[in-house]
Computed example of a mutant assay.
Amino acid sequence: MIEQLQKIGPSSIRGIARAVERDVKRVHEDTSALLEWGIFEQIGDGKKSRPL
């Protein structure tokens, strides 16, 4: 998922789920954990982005 997000750039949960062909609920769970661990950061409009 992280590799795909690096390719597509900031995206919504639904956009990430489509890109990695996974269920939106599971992607939401994963991104929530990654946000908590500091691997992702949330940008203003609700999209997720991997920090530099």
Rank of each mutant, 00 (worst) to 15 (best):
L34A: 05
P10D: 12
A33K: 12
V24N: 11
E29G: 12
V27Q: 01
S11T: 08
F40G: 03
I16Y: 01
G15R: 00
E41D: 07
V27H: 01
L35E: 01
D30Y: 05
Q42V: 06
F40V: 10
L35W: 00
I16C: 02
E29M: 15
S32V: 07
F40E: 03
S11K: 13
I13F: 13
I8K: 10
T31C: 13
A19N: 03
G38V: 13
I8V: 13
R18S: 05
G38M: 11
L35D: 00
V27W: 03
I8N: 11
A33T: 11
R14D: 14
R14S: 13
W37P: 04
W37T: 07
R22D: 06
R26M: 11
H28N: 15
A17W: 01
H28R: 15
R26F: 10
I16D: 00
W37I: 10
S32F: 07
I39Q: 11
V20N: 00
K25E: 13
I16L: 08
R14N: 09
G15E: 00
G38C: 12
I16E: 01
E29Y: 14
E21M: 07
I13R: 14
P10E: 12
F40K: 03
G38S: 08
K25L: 09
E21R: 14
F40S: 06
G38H: 09
P10A: 12
A33R: 12
I39S: 04
E36Q: 08
R22K: 14
L35C: 00
A33H: 13
K25A: 13
V24E: 14
G38R: 10
P10I: 05
D23Y: 04
W37L: 15
L35Y: 00
E36Y: 07
G38N: 08
S11F: 05
A33W: 07
V20Q: 02
A19Q: 03
F40A: 04
E21V: 11
R26T: 13
H28A: 15
G38K: 07
H28W: 13
S12T: 14
V24F: 07
I39K: 07
S11L: 03
I13K: 13
R18G: 04
G9K: 05
I13N: 12
V24L: 10
A17H: 01
R18F: 04
G9E: 06
F40P: 02
G15L: 00
R22C: 08
E36C: 06
V27K: 01
S11G: 06
K25G: 11
S11Q: 14
T31F: 03
Q42N: 11
P10F: 06
A17N: 03
I16G: 00
R18M: 06
E36P: 02
E21S: 09
S12K: 09
I13T: 15
D23N: 14
A17T: 03
S32G: 06
A33V: 14
G9D: 05
R18T: 09
G9W: 05
Q42C: 06
G15F: 00
G38L: 11
G38Q: 11
G9A: 04
V20E: 01
I16A: 02
